[in-house]
Simulated assay, not measured.
Amino acid sequence: MLPRPEKSAVPLVETAIRQTKPGPKPTKLRDGAGLCLLVNPIGSKLWRWKHRYLGKEKLMPLGQCPNVTLAQARQSRDDAHQLPTV
């Protein structure tokens, strides 16, 4: 099966993450390979990794920004992707 094209071809940068302000609705900033930053209306920023396992879509939380940086979130995503399947 071919991977679906990403909605955002431009990866995130730290400056864009810091400058993002909460709005009236939750917003997703996509980085690529399923990694996104969810910005909630209350101001929290959460790293999430969307992937498929056994044909089902899963959502793995990777931490809260700024406690987890962009580089750490990417590394966590890559590490989780390399985990062996049962």
Rank of each mutant, 00 (worst) to 15 (best):
G23Q: 14
K58I: 01
A16N: 06
G43Y: 02
G32C: 07
R77T: 03
M60K: 14
T85V: 06
Q75N: 11
D78G: 00
L62H: 09
E6Y: 03
G55N: 01
K45I: 03
P11A: 11
E57R: 04
I42F: 06
W49M: 02
L83Q: 15
Y53A: 11
R48K: 14
K50F: 03
P26A: 12
K7Y: 03
N40R: 11
W47Q: 06
Q75H: 10
T27D: 03
L59M: 13
A80F: 04
N67D: 15
V68K: 09
A9V: 12
E57F: 01
E6Q: 15
L59P: 03
C65K: 01
G32N: 07
G23M: 05
L38M: 13
L12C: 06
P22A: 06
A80P: 00
H81Q: 15
D79S: 12
W47A: 06
K58M: 11
D79G: 10
K28Q: 12
R18T: 11
G34A: 06
G55F: 03
P26R: 10
C65R: 02
Q75W: 00
P26L: 05
S44F: 04
C36Q: 13
Q72Y: 01
P24W: 00
Q64K: 09
G55Q: 05
A16K: 15
D79I: 02
S44Y: 03
G43L: 08
V13G: 14
W47N: 10
V13Q: 11
L54W: 04
P22R: 07
L59V: 10
L12R: 08
V68P: 10
W47M: 10
L83G: 01
K56A: 14
L37W: 09
L35Q: 08
S76T: 07
V86W: 05
L35W: 09
Q19R: 15
C36R: 10
P66K: 13
E57K: 03
V10L: 13
R30T: 14
L38R: 07
E14W: 01
R52I: 00
K25V: 04
G55A: 04
M1D: 11
L62N: 10
K50D: 12
R18Y: 09
L12H: 03
P26W: 05
C65A: 11
K56W: 04
P24D: 15
K45Q: 09
R74N: 09
S8Q: 12
T27Y: 08
K58R: 14
E14D: 15
R74M: 06
L54S: 11
K45N: 07
R48G: 07
S76I: 00
I42C: 08
L38F: 04
D79Y: 01
H51C: 07
R4D: 08
V10W: 02
K25L: 02
R52L: 01
L54K: 10
R48N: 15
K28C: 09
T27H: 08
S44Q: 12
K56F: 07
N67W: 04
L35V: 10
Y53E: 13
L59C: 09
P3W: 04
L54D: 11
T85P: 00
V68G: 09
K7N: 12
K7S: 13
V39E: 12
G43H: 08
I17N: 05
G43V: 05
P66F: 13
V10Q: 13
K50Q: 12
L12P: 05
A16M: 10
